[in-house]
Amino acid sequence: MPAEWSRHRRTWIAWPTGGHADGVAAEDLAEARTAWATVVRAVALFEPVTLVADPADVADARRSMRGGPTAFGVDVVSAALDDAWMRDTGPTFVLGRDGRLGAVDWVFQGWGGQDWAVWEHDRHLASAVADRAGAERVPSPLVAEGGALHVDGAGTVLLTESVLLDPARNPGLVRADVEDELARTVGATTCVWLPRGLTADHGAHGTRGHVDLVAAFAAPGTVLLHWQPDPAHPDHAVSLELEGLLSGARDVRGVPLEVVRVPAPSTLEDGTDWVSWSYVSHAVVNGGVVAPAFDDARDREAHVLLRRLYDGRRVVGVDARAVFDRGGGLHSVTQQEPEERSG
């Protein structure tokens, strides 16, 4: 699996459906679609986007994409959907030894079969996307989602025990079983295991700890860590624990990881619960970074940090509050398709 800063052919995004599976009421659908459309337009400033819409929503998706400043096209295609988290329900794209495109088709069953989730259609989406991309499908028996792993493109992967060893996902599996399957599918030969994710992501509508909200590679040997500096928030303890583990880890080359703290937004609660707002959940695109913004005092600091870490790429901020309100982040909305390589 190439690193996300490698060259992309396109980004795939799913359009929110009327039957949004994360428990969002139907009257909130317009807000969700406005938020997703903003992400689509931001990504399309840098590379083509293929927007997958449920057959009943194709016309709406096409109307929503008219106008607006984009440098690249947005191609709307039809496929049956339950939800709009393409990172999790779509395939994980990889390249073979010959440079040709492959698509890992994990078993998807609603983030551990959670009682609010439906996946009648989404369990087939990875295969449908693989076909449309012209990729060789790589079926996997592992219950996983794309947000459950983050790679450096050289053979190192970040992942959490709370997801990949979740008894509701992969009962009876141990670390070695997961590691063998990741080596076969995404070419990861060095696994850096973290025990859990952010507190809110372990809540009622969370994923039980996706790694892409809390830690991500920004370069070989460099890991971004969601850093909650306020002891009043339970993620402060999580940040301390994960920093200790990551600082003691090595990548596939045997080099110690450099851990870069990415301060969390200063907002701690949304009025009902702790927030999992995280700048780590961003999308790296060709020549740019689509970064979350929260109308928060730390937005600018985070965007400047991302610009520096990604070697001067243009950083475009988008208001991500409506996305996070629905249980995921900007990274969860997107799935990059790498360019094929000759030879």
Rank of each mutant, 00 (worst) to 15 (best):
A168F: 04
G99Y: 09
P91V: 04
A130Y: 09
A237M: 03
H226R: 14
D105N: 15
E243R: 13
P229H: 06
T70F: 02
A249S: 14
D235T: 03
G172T: 12
V318K: 12
D166Q: 14
P195L: 05
T222K: 14
A14P: 04
V238H: 04
G328I: 05
V104K: 09
P171W: 13
G317Q: 14
T89Y: 01
A130T: 04
V174L: 02
S276G: 13
V238S: 02
H150Y: 03
P91T: 01
A218Y: 07
A35S: 02
E4Q: 11
L309S: 15
L330P: 15
G23T: 02
R62D: 09
R261P: 09
D299V: 04
W36I: 08
V304R: 15
D122Q: 00
Q109M: 01
D22F: 02
N286S: 12
S247C: 05
S162F: 02
V43F: 15
R97C: 00
L51H: 06
Y310Q: 00
G99W: 12
A44E: 03
V333H: 11
L159E: 10
H226C: 09
V186H: 09
A293G: 14
D325K: 14
T156A: 06
A30H: 11
A128E: 14
R9K: 10
G197M: 06
F108T: 00
L257Q: 15
T199K: 10
D319P: 13
H20Y: 10
A59E: 15
V290W: 08
F93E: 12
V76P: 03
D122L: 06
P256F: 03
R63F: 03
R326H: 07
S281C: 08
L164H: 14
L173R: 15
E31S: 10
T334A: 11
A264W: 06
F324I: 06
H20N: 15
P234N: 05
V157P: 12
N286G: 05
G146N: 14
L51C: 07
S64P: 09
D230A: 00
V58Y: 15
G187T: 02
C191E: 05
A126L: 07
G99H: 12
Q109L: 04
P265S: 09
D82A: 05
G155H: 03
S162T: 05
V74T: 09
V315H: 13
R321V: 06
G67P: 04
G312I: 00
A320E: 07
R341M: 12
V318E: 01
T156W: 10
A204E: 08
T34N: 11
A215R: 08
T190C: 09
W36R: 12
L159A: 14
P338W: 06
W277Y: 13
Q335N: 13
T17P: 06
P167D: 11
V49D: 12
E243C: 03
D270I: 00
P195W: 00
D201E: 00
S281H: 07
L309Y: 13
G206A: 07
D131R: 05
G73M: 05
L29W: 02
A25M: 02
D230N: 05
H8P: 03
A135E: 04
V43N: 15
G206Q: 10
V255L: 12
